[in-house]
Measured scan of single mutants.
Amino acid sequence: LGPKYVGLWDFKSRTDEELSFRAGDVFHVARKEEQWWWATLLDEAGGAVAQGYVPHNYLAERE
């Protein structure tokens, strides 16, 4: 699936296409579209919880 990303700060969605998340949440990014990335929010087991657009500057690649 490629690298995983972690949320740096809490983010509250403003549209139906955006995905709310908390700092520390883990994502798989499917598409990078300039300022907004289409991402899947993952649970602790790595299963998909939700999908939506997230601001790229709120995520960091997980080491």
Rank of each mutant, 00 (worst) to 15 (best):
L1P: 13
L1H: 13
G2D: 11
P3R: 10
K4D: 10
K4M: 15
K4V: 15
K4F: 15
K4G: 07
K4C: 14
Y5N: 00
Y5R: 01
Y5P: 00
Y5F: 09
V6Q: 04
V6E: 05
V6P: 03
V6R: 03
V6A: 03
V6H: 04
V6C: 11
G7R: 00
G7V: 08
G7Y: 05
G7Q: 03
L8H: 02
L8E: 03
W9C: 15
W9D: 03
W9P: 01
W9N: 05
D10R: 05
D10N: 07
D10F: 11
F11H: 07
F11C: 07
F11D: 01
K12E: 14
S13D: 02
S13Q: 08
R14D: 10
R14W: 08
T15L: 08
T15W: 08
D16F: 09
E17S: 13
E17N: 14
E18S: 06
E18F: 12
E18K: 05
E18R: 07
L19N: 00
L19W: 04
L19V: 06
L19I: 11
S20L: 04
S20V: 04
F21Q: 00
F21W: 01
R22F: 11
R22A: 08
R22T: 08
A23V: 07
G24D: 02
G24I: 04
D25I: 08
V26I: 14
V26A: 06
V26T: 11
V26P: 02
F27R: 00
F27Y: 02
F27G: 00
H28C: 10
H28E: 12
H28A: 10
H28V: 14
H28G: 03
V29L: 03
V29M: 01
A30N: 15
A30T: 15
R31K: 10
R31P: 03
R31G: 05
R31F: 12
R31N: 07
R31T: 07
K32N: 06
E33K: 07
E33M: 09
E33Q: 08
E33P: 02
E33A: 08
E34S: 13
E34Y: 10
E34N: 11
E34L: 10
E34R: 11
E34A: 13
E34W: 08
Q35P: 06
Q35M: 13
Q35H: 15
Q35S: 11
W36S: 06
W36A: 06
W36N: 06
W36T: 05
W37D: 00
W37P: 00
W37L: 04
W38Q: 02
W38N: 00
W38P: 00
W38M: 05
W38F: 12
A39C: 08
T40K: 05
T40L: 12
L41C: 04
L41H: 01
L41N: 01
L41Q: 03
L41W: 03
L41Y: 02
D43Y: 06
D43N: 10
D43H: 03
E44Y: 08
E44Q: 10
E44D: 12
E44L: 09
E44V: 09
A45M: 13
A45C: 14
G46V: 04
G46L: 06
G46N: 06
G47T: 14
G47M: 15
G47N: 15
A48S: 10
A48G: 08
A48L: 09
A48Y: 10
V49F: 06
V49D: 01
A50V: 06
A50M: 09
A50Q: 08
A50H: 05
Q51R: 07
Q51A: 11
Q51T: 14
Q51N: 08
Q51G: 04
G52W: 07
G52D: 01
Y53T: 03
Y53S: 03
Y53M: 08
Y53I: 05
V54S: 03
V54Q: 00
V54M: 01
V54F: 03
P55K: 05
P55T: 04
P55S: 05
H56V: 11
H56M: 13
H56F: 13
N57A: 08
N57Q: 09
N57K: 08
N57E: 10
N57P: 02
Y58N: 02
Y58P: 02
Y58S: 06
Y58L: 07
L59E: 03
L59Y: 04
L59D: 04
L59S: 01
L59Q: 02
L59H: 03
A60R: 13
A60W: 09
E61G: 05
E61K: 11
E61Q: 11
R62K: 14
R62D: 12
E63K: 12
E63W: 12
E63V: 13
E63H: 12
